[in-house]
Amino acid sequence: MSAAIQTINLTKRYGRTVALDQLNLTVAPGTIYGFVGPNGAGKTTTLRMLAGLLEPSSGEIRLLDERLDREGRASQRLVGYMPDFFGVYDDLRVWEYLDFFARCYNLPAAKRRSTVEGLLDLVDLAPKRDAFVQSLSRGMQQRLCLAHALVHDPPILLLDEPASGLDPRARVELRELLRTLRDMGKTIVLSSHILSELAEVCTALGIMQGGRLIASGSLDEVMHQLGNTRRLKLALVRGLEQAQAVLRATPGVGAIEVVEEEAVPSSGVVMLLIEWDGSPEATADLIERLVKAGAGLAAFGSTTNDLEELFLQIATP
């Protein structure tokens, strides 16, 4: 199947500043793709270029195999865009707001009404149909803005920081909405600083830094590309020294850390955290040797650095 979004050496310069440098990105249809990166990494620039609002300095954008022309007309048809800081027309009613954008997308009068009602149901704003936009909560306005991006039923959705400023409940609602949209067959590209959210919703991730895409793929693939090693967590009730000796002698074991804060002195349990780059079979061998060496293994688990740590890792200069 062809890519929903493909960029080839996409570059954006502002004078001498390179905001986006040779971006080669491929997003498969039906994916929820999340951009992670610190401020100024080029996430918004990328989304704005995909939405046809910014002209690339060089490179190419293809949306569903259609090359984006200089006027960005394909974007207007194929993309629904929600910017990071969006405004709403305060003096319009909720249905009028959506009706306005439906008119902007040239929807015929007969279809306009059903589209507006359908979208109000989808984003759960039907009870607020006749309310003024200014009277809506931030979360509701966010959903309304998302609804406006769906008014022409685009196959691709670009959402810049869709969860910013939302309370936890509104975030959960937004997450559910994104899943519903994915089930409807939409390809969704979003950026967010709420990283846990990306991990829960996104099927693929792109890590950006300094205008470059430094890793892209599924969460596991990204972790691997970033050299982010898996960790093993061991709970020992006895034989700490023997365990450490075995670990030091085992290839694939990196740093060994005794986690003091997780130790339970009354029970005599000691927690060990080790960097581990072994296969599942090597992991089984390691457990066997630990037990044979006399280590009292009370618990054993595998863990990876979470996105929060990953973000801090790339955001720290």
Partner: peptide
């Protein structure tokens, strides 16, 4: 100022 200009420009208008 209202940050609605991008929303407008993203449409075929």
């Amino acid at each position: 100022e209202q940050l609605t200009y991008d929303l407008l420009l993203a449409t075929p208008l």
